[in-house]
Design a protein around this nucleic acid. Structure first.
Lengths: 154, 154
DNA sequence: TGGCAATCATTGCATCGGCAGTCAATACCC
DNA sequence: GGGTATTGACTGCCGATGCAATGATTGCCA
């Protein structure tokens, strides 16, 4: 019925394995690219998410990055100590703490973004526009499925 | 020149972001699917790699999974304590220690594999055969690039 | 043959991540 | 309005990860 069965699930043909390895390699590359900024790739992904206003709060940020909520609190602590992120209590809903970038945070985020763009353009050398947009669309589809998926049956 | 520029790098259109989120969500799902086996998704990826003979040694396993070598030693420690993996010193090259699965390790690996197959078939419901093989091919291409890529310029 | 570089496994150290539980504030529902 | 459920931020705990350094072994090359 499905695509995979016990005769064709090899690492090289497994989407999960490939996604995992691509993620690890890409993040490791970016970690080094950001080293002189004192930031990690995970830090930057949080900053850029705040930059685009996708995650006004700590909990939303954790959801957006599929990250642990508790760990996110501590990550914001360090980014705040570095002077890149501000916390501001919301008066309408006093549970939430609004996150925003400081001017220094904004600047660092954009500097890192430029490096990310350079890296990806280099990695995607030789790809056609269609191939790239197809990959993006398929990953978006997969993400949507994984976000709403119930715990695996069986 | 490249695909990305400062006007179109949004998280939703960023391959890096999408790969990261898909990886985190997929691994979290599998972690729960393996919970009653006492294994994590990372554990299983190591076991299945040994199962297929891609990684006879600890260092090769770390490379195959894009994982840290030191952390891999400790992971093998725990898998050995669980009785799933055996270490065997190689006599030809006395630096290396051959890894192999015990019968229990083999059995647990296959049990988990069946769950992985069930999960992915569920997640890929509605995808055509071509869409899936296209995604796999593109991820393979990306992995190959990232594996051989030099540290990012700029 | 002898010395240098490379590889492998391992370990210490610092940090990070996921999980569970706490407390406060809000939303929902009868 | 009152009680319950939900949400958000935070913390402690444990295990895992990345990095750097070590010791042992092998390969390479003059």
């Amino acid at each position: 019925m499905g695509f995979y069965d016990t005769t064709n699930l090899y690492p090289d043909s497994s989407i999960g394995y490939l996604v995992k390895v691509c993620n690890q390699l890409g993040m490791a590359h970016l970690d080094r690219a950001f080293a002189d900024e004192g930031l990690s790739a995970v830090h930057w992904s949080a900053l850029i998410s705040i930059h685009f206003g996708r995650a006004p709060t700590c909990a939303a940020l954790a959801r957006d990055l599929a990250h642990d909520k508790g760990a996110m609190t501590r990550m914001i602590d360090t980014l705040e100590q570095k002077g890149l992120v501000r916390r501001l209590r919301n008066d309408d809903d006093r549970r939430v703490i609004q996150l925003s970038l400081t001017p220094e945070g904004e600047a660092a985020t954009l500097r890192c973004r430029d490096r990310v763009i350079a890296c990806w353009n280099e990695w995607l050398t030789g790809w056609t526009h269609d191939e790239i947009t197809t990959l993006i669309a398929q990953l978006q589809r997969l993400r949507a499925t994984l976000e709403t998926a119930a715990p695996c049956a069986a």
